[in-house]
Design a protein around this nucleic acid. Structure first.
Length: 820
DNA sequence: GAGCACTGC
């Protein structure tokens, strides 16, 4: 065996499995060399970031190994696997859950969740099921805290809750609270603008927000079962429902409602005081998506103000997180209370308790249920984490007993596929007396069927090796994993305000992400986590992930705030305040598209755009298209639907397939560029009535993405009909020839600053800023030279790329820029 | 010559 496989990360007390490792065959030289060169070239990009790279290590590492004391992983939670099933926190090994498996449905509206029983809801069997589940609920770590939690919220309006993995918080908290006296609908008089007052019922329902759709739906399903009630719209008596985009399932009697953060924000646009709710539970705050920052900001204003829009009736707020970083949240809400004058007696209609304690905030820690996971660091910095992972994978496989699958965290599709090939090559010559390995790639762009393979049990005497991107960190849980290999890096998207450019770069992960990854090894049994970096490196990692609000374009968030009546953005209570420059840039962008008036207040155009489920620029394009008539608008809706969805065009590694698909796709290509090509694709897909899936496969188009496109298209058309931009009569599409000029000019209304012109040296330079930009290879205009281009996205990966590109005329660009 | 992960009346 060549020296390079000697790397050993094992425990001191265990002898190095050298002999075994030496049995691992090295692939033949030429192949290996060629492949390595290619890979090295490819990976160079990943590593050529602003981050300092660890020095190349020597060929052989010392066999000393540092082993961190076995700490349990602290983080994480809802954890729903791709099969869209049960949240892991409620899973109990011996739980009988026959129905859950059968009821696994996708979150698409077409496959709406079936009633839990036959057409006639069988309440007796629901109750019996719930009674059984109650025995399991009693064993959850949070169950003993029920009284404490109830008492906290009787006395106080805000509670912060740290719940480790498997504590049961997401499913149990709503059930603890739903029968509290303050959770009943309460009559209240709401003062109106004209001085009169209106009597309504305030409260009665609990909202629980989730960052992801699948989590919202599967938690709702689980809680409905535990409460012995039908789910959502399946029965008017249903007490538990959910609401996510394209799929809302509630009933008139819904008391517990799981929804995505985005959905709650949308509800707040129509009902800023959340009058339907007695409590809002914000779950998974540690993930810190931008929506959760907006939600907490709005909620802080709501709980610390005078609640005039709720007739003085308090709103209870529970903020739940898996990390212990509760101090900043505590400070955040306390600051809100401090800034407000003390509430006088009598103004708090429902709440009892002393005046002073009403404003206190309780903090509650719940232990999780996790097995210990041993951390094993690399003794020296790792230069090539793909090679290092390869060695560790086989070291584990040779040394550790079955069962116990291996989950490897990598940065992206490229590294996943590179390692997949390597492991397969090495596995070919493995000692036949050893268990086999089954390599399973996992990344978001992988077709659904291939993703599902990860969840299938391995064949007998086979160890699964799952090579995954970040998708397995939060969104997907794979059962059976006892070994985690963590490369310590992830691709992170960062919006650079000054350049108006999104960068997708490989960066070191945070400590909390490292803990999260490690925790994946301890869900079913004690596990091990091999970190492909030194303990020293670990200690220098940031504590937490950079909140999205510091990494993204803020225009949509600001428009939402303006639409909610937040006039002074600077005084908005941000959990993390974005830099002034980023706020100004977003305001400027909103001004440019006429969403704001010169005084910074929201315009009619802005109000309209804010209600669309689109970025402000795409919303502006839609409005612009409506001025060119109905045909232009429907065409632009088709294109916008594609742009607001993941990439609809697939790629394949197989050359023959590629050529066949290229040929099939050719009929869709339009020389005007990607926008018109998308239009032709949507038309062809929508016009395919026989077998859309087969059509998609033939054209190497993502069926999954196209289903989302059709969902968005339907939603946008409905909204346009409601706002009278489209006529009500819903005639079947009479396809006209598309008119590229008005379509592209509509796009320029939103994207005038996303334009570049051809310069004499044959490259493109941005019209604003004069930066070099290349047409992305995925574009139909790749390699083409046109007078000027307009693009949907400006992304930096290994260089600056324009994506979603169409040819435009310079004088159109001039007009569009002048119009701003 | 290239595709981290989420999400929206």
């Amino acid at each position: 065996m060549p020296e390079k496989v000697h790397t050993h990360f094992g425990d001191e007390e265990e002898s190095a499995p050298k002999q075994n490792l030496q049995a691992v065959p090295e692939p033949t030289e030429p192949q290996d060399a060629g492949r390595k060169k290619k890979r090295a070239k490819k990976r160079k990009r990943d590593e050529s970031n602003d981050e300092p790279q660890p020095k190349p290590r020597d060929q052989e590492l010392p066999q000393t190994v540092k082993t961190l004391s076995t700490k349990t992983a602290q983080k994480e939670e809802p954890i729903v696997d791709i099969q869209r099933e049960v949240p892991a926190e409620s899973e109990v090994a011996d739980a009988p859950q026959p129905q859950l498996a059968n009821n696994a449905t996708k979150s698409r509206p077409k496959t709406k969740s079936k009633p839990l029983t036959d057409t006639k809801t069988n309440f007796t069997s629901l109750r019996e099921k719930a009674t059984k589940l109650y025995e399991l609920r009693k064993k959850l770590p949070i169950f003993g805290h029920a009284d404490e939690i109830r008492k906290n919220l009787r006395d106080q309006d805000v509670m912060l809750l740290v719940g480790e993995t498997g504590s049961g918080k997401s499913t149990q908290i709503p059930q603890f609270l739903v029968n509290e006296f303050w959770c009943r609908p309460t009559p209240a008089k709401i003062p109106q603008k004209d001085g009169s007052s209106k009597s309504i019922n305030v409260g009665g329902c609990i909202a629980i927000t989730q960052p992801r759709r699948v989590a919202a739906i599967s938690l709702a399903r689980r809680v409905a079962e535990e409460m012995g009630t039908p789910l959502g719209s399946s029965s008017p008596a249903s007490k538990v429902g959910y609401s996510v985009r394209f799929d809302t399932s509630t009933s008139p009697s819904t008391r517990v409602k799981f929804l995505t953060e985005g959905m709650l924000l949308q509800e707040m646009l129509h009902d800023p005081w959340l009058t339907k709710y007695s409590a809002v539970v914000v779950d998974e705050v540690h993930e810190r998506g931008i929506n959760v920052d907006l939600v907490t900001g709005f909620l802080r204003n709501l709980v610390s103000g005078k609640r005039e829009g709720r007739g003085g009736i308090p709103l209870k707020v529970v903020v739940m997180s898996a990390t212990a970083d509760m101090e900043s949240l505590l400070g955040f809400f306390q600051e809100g209370f401090k800034a407000q004058p003390q509430i006088q007696n009598g103004e708090t209609n429902g709440a009892t308790g002393s005046k002073d304690s009403v404003r206190d905030i309780s903090v509650c820690h719940i232990k999780g249920r996790q097995f210990p996971v041993k951390t094993i660091y690399s003794p020296e910095p790792v230069h090539d984490f793909v090679d290092a992972a390869l060695k560790i994978i086989f070291q584990i496989h040779y040394k550790e007993p079955m069962p116990g699958d291996i989950l490897v965290f990598l940065t992206g599709q490229e590294t996943v596929e590179a390692l997949e090939n390597l492991v397969n090559e090495y596995a070919v010559g493995m000692d036949p007396s050893l268990p086999r390995v089954q390599v399973l790639p996992l990344f978001a762009a992988l077709p659904q069927a291939a993703q599902q393979r990860v969840f299938a049990p391995a064949p007998p005497r086979t160890r699964k090796v799952i090579l995954s991107t970040n998708i397995a960190e939060t969104s997907v849980t794979v059962a059976g994993v006892r070994y985690v290999v963590d490369c310590g890096k992830a691709k992170i998207k960062q919006f650079r305000t000054r350049l108006g450019l999104d960068s997708l770069l490989v960066k070191p992960i945070s400590k909390s992400a490292a803990i999260q990854r490690k925790g994946r090894a301890g869900r079913e049994a004690p596990g091990q986590c091999y970190r492909l970096y030194t303990e020293q490196d670990y200690l220098t990692l940031d504590e937490t992930n950079t909140p999205e609000i510091l990494r993204c374009d803020l225009s949509q968030a600001l428009l939402n705030m303006k639409a909610r009546g937040v006039d002074d953005i600077v005084r908005f209570p941000f959990l993390t305040r974005p830099p002034r420059e980023a706020l100004e840039k977003a305001l400027l962008q909103l001004l440019n598209i006429d969403a704001l008036g010169d005084d910074g207040s929201i315009s009619d155009v802005g109000l309209h755009i804010a209600k669309l489920p689109l970025t402000p620029t795409l919303g502006r394009v839609l409005l612009a298209a409506s001025e060119h008539g109905k045909e232009c608008l429907t065409d632009v809706i088709d294109i916008i639907s594609c742009l607001s969805v993941e990439n609809i065009f697939l790629n394949t590694s197989s050359e023959e397939k590629k050529e066949a698909a290229e040929a099939a796709r050719r009929e869709l290509y339009r020389r005007e560029g990607d926008h018109l090509t998308m239009l032709m694709t949507v038309r062809a897909y929508a016009g395919e009535n026989a077998d859309r899936k087969a059509w998609a496969e033939r054209h190497l188009v993502s069926h999954r993405a196209m289903q989302s496109v059709m969902d968005v298209r339907k939603q946008l058309r409905t909204q346009c009909r409601q706002s009278k931009l489209l006529p009500r009569d819903d005639r079947q599409d009479q396809y006209h020839d598309p008119a590229p000029v008005p379509i592209l000019q509509s796009f320029l209304c939103g994207f005038a600053t996303n334009t570049a012109r051809l310069v004499p040296d044959g490259s493109y330079r941005t019209v604003v800023g004069n930066q070099t930009v290349a047409i992305h290879p995925s574009s139909v205009l790749f390699g083409k030279k046109v007078e000027a281009i307009m693009y949907n996205e400006f992304v930096f990966t290994n260089r600056s790329y324009a994506r979603g590109v169409s040819a435009v005329q310079m004088d159109w660009v001039g007009e569009a820029l002048a119009g701003q």
